[in-house]
Design a protein around this nucleic acid. Structure first.
Lengths: 119, 119
DNA sequence: CGATCACTTAGGCCCATGCCTAACCAAAAC
DNA sequence: GTTTTGGTTAGGCATGGGCCTAAGTGATCG
């Protein structure tokens, strides 16, 4: 069962692995079974399903049994959560740059501040 | 020295740690020295600076020596890279949902498809 | 110059992660 | 009902990550 309360920790560390990112990429095109997903990888199946387990624990995918196969589906909104975290902090950073710039503007004719832009 | 070619792997795994995310958060407010950043954490300094090393290798921060201290600065655009990866795949996923919906629309009076929405 | 401050380097411990093989299970095909 | 297919469970090995303490370095302060 998918983790109902996936942490941002789990998401980012799930995404830190190239195999798992490739799975996310594949699933962004649509659902697929375990063996379909596993096919491109030179890896034993148990190792691969372990990756799927990590993705599912992280809330990035869900899966359901379909006959003797297992169909995996990407959980789009979960990606959004990680995206939002990044966006929030990048915006903070940008806002600060803007304030700094504005401040420098007010000092135009005076001496530069203690934080030189290194360009 | 900061890694000039940070991989998306390095970024995501750097962001997978709560200490390191807290550092990113702190630096989104503006530059700070190692010990300023370390202060809130109940952790030996060498352990903490190791985290800074990971962030720097991942290209998420840069740092320069300032007297006997070391000033760390967030690298905003790097956050953007991770954000973009996520956005790209989420958009793929959304696009597919849209196509699926549109397709279902064309079948309105007919039987539902093999992929039920689980709401 | 000696002491202190802000780190860094070196080395070690422990648990988590990523991979494997071998064996098992359950649905489907024959 | 036996075999094949699709996947899981169990268990083991090796590397890496996160933490520590102890000792070193280089800039500043008295």
């Amino acid at each position: 069962m998918p983790n109902q309360n996936p942490s941002i920790d789990q998401m980012f560390s799930a995404l830190a692995d190239p195999t798992r990112r490739a799975v996310v990429q594949a699933l962004s095109q649509g659902p697929a079974t375990v063996s379909q997903l596993a096919a491109p990888f030179a890896m034993a199946l148990p190792s691969f399903t372990q990756h799927l387990g990590v993705l599912e624990e992280a809330g990035l995918i869900t899966s359901r049994r379909q006959g003797r196969a297992r169909l995996c589906v990407l959980n789009g909104p979960a990606l959004r959560d990680a995206e939002d975290w990044l966006a929030a902090h990048r915006r903070q950073w940008e806002a600060r740059l803007d304030r700094l710039e504005a401040h420098l503007e007010t000092l135009k004719p005076a001496a530069p501040e203690k934080e030189p832009s290194d360009d």
